[in-house]
Amino acid sequence: MAKGRIEFDYGKCKCCLLCTKFCPTNILVLDTTKINEKGYNLIRVTEAEKCIGCAFCAMMCPDSVITVYRLEGSKV
């Protein structure tokens, strides 16, 4: 089971891709098949089970789009 989980507030995402660059497990990718109301492509989590809940993606997100959950007791 994954240590962490993230949720996107997709409506506010501007697809700057910084989250994808700072994810230490490289599980965030650009999804060119979807766009939001603003016309930006969305970000997809490829291998959710690899998320460690480190919140690097959220910390580097300029638009506060990402909420990060972590299993109680698990450490990054």
Binding site: R5, K14, C15, L17, A55, S64, T67, Y69, R70
Partner: peptide, 22 residues
């Protein structure tokens, strides 16, 4: 049980920031 470790600050409003991407 999971807990929230990072979320948008209550110090910000709901408005979408007017800044360019990134």
């Amino acid at each position: 049980m999971e807990k929230i470790v990072y979320q948008k600050s209550k110090g910000l409003t709901d408005a979408t920031l007017s800044y360019c991407p990134g």
